[in-house]
Amino acid sequence: MAEGVLPAQAIRALAASGAIAADPPILPAQIQPASIDLRLGTVAYRVRASFLAGQGRRVADRIAEFGMHEIDLTRGAVLEKGCVYVVPLMEHLALPGDLTAVANAKSSTGRLDLLTRTITDGGVEFDRIPAGYTGPLYAEICPRSFSVLVRPGMRLNQMRFRRGHAVLDDAALAALHARVGLVDGPAVISDGLGFSVDLRPRAGLMGYRAKPHAGMIDLDRIGAYDPADFWEELQARDGHLILDPGAFYILVSQEAVTIPPDHAAEMAPYLAMVGEFRVHYAGFFDPGFGHAAAGGAGSRGVLEVRCHEAPFVLEHGQVVGRLVYERMAAVPDTLYGAGIASNYQGQGLKLSKHFRP
């Protein structure tokens, strides 16, 4: 197969070959157009701090070093806001030597301010798995705004596989935009495709801020919660928003975004020099997102924003992040939004699927 991000059909082949294995076996619903969803196992470990295993070290040994107590997830368990947990995943890898992998939080996970990262034995980076890795996978989970109820089999993060170099340079990205129109306006291209924040929406609602003392969210309950119990609505006024340190916001991009079927994208942070904030925990955009033929015309990027050390004025139209596009090794046999119950195709400003519209 050619260089690039592996499509769904190639991920199924990896599972059939044992390069991705799981107990219980992998479910068809886990396979997305360019990634596989990873499932929580039956136990969680409350740990004193976030950690990486480090070269030559096992995650299990670090859990023994930093663990505080073990939690049985089989009847459901609450992961409390502000605490750090490590959960062994049901999946494990035996990657061939020409494949690397990268993980990221799923969209609904990020929109709940649920910091979820993948760690591995010998790992020196979060969410990055080197070629040829053989071993278990773990999710580090830190609820930031809301405590959550979890059970085995829940899918909070996802993984992509890549052969060779797939990232488009600026010249290739400009050519792709000229061919298919990646955004519905001028393209800001510099180490990826820049996107800006919309703080003057026509409907008046420009975003949401998480309430500081809200209740618990059961991650299995879809469309069950009243947004007013968890979120403060932010009304558009004068085209700017003062971000409060430590607060979490859901905002939306000005641009409608398109990911053509033969490409995938990942949302990456913008330069730290532009302000005291971070945008987006959940970074994967699948082939077909925003693609008109897959029902996605007009899809915009939802921005998960957390302010850091000092209050910061965010201005309407300010560039706050970038999409890094990658070539697919082949077009997936199923596109985002095309018959796979995708939750966010055609989206504008939208909370996670757990909240009532």
Rank of each mutant, 00 (worst) to 15 (best):
G76Q: 13
T120L: 10
I63G: 03
S108E: 13
V78D: 11
R75C: 08
N104V: 08
R57G: 00
A22S: 15
R48H: 08
A77Y: 05
G82M: 08
E65G: 02
V148W: 10
I31A: 03
G82V: 08
Q55S: 14
Q32I: 04
F51Q: 07
L112R: 06
Y45L: 01
R75A: 15
D113C: 13
V87Y: 06
G123I: 03
Y45F: 15
L95K: 05
V59K: 09
Y138T: 00
D61Q: 11
R144M: 15
D121G: 09
V87L: 08
A64L: 12
P143A: 12
A94N: 13
S50A: 15
A34M: 11
I129N: 07
A103S: 15
R58H: 10
A21D: 13
L95H: 10
P25G: 10
A64R: 15
T118F: 01
I26F: 04
A101N: 02
P33E: 11
H69Q: 12
I129G: 06
A103Q: 01
G123L: 01
A29S: 14
T118I: 12
L27S: 11
R144P: 00
P96Q: 08
P25Q: 10
G110R: 05
P24G: 11
A29H: 11
G97F: 01
S35D: 08
S107G: 13
A44F: 07
P25L: 13
G67P: 08
R144I: 03
L114Y: 04
S147H: 10
R75S: 14
L112M: 14
R57K: 14
S107H: 10
P88R: 09
A29I: 11
I26N: 01
R144L: 15
T100D: 05
T120K: 00
S50W: 02
S17Q: 14
P136C: 09
C142P: 00
G76W: 13
L79Q: 04
T74S: 14
T118E: 02
V86T: 12
E65I: 01
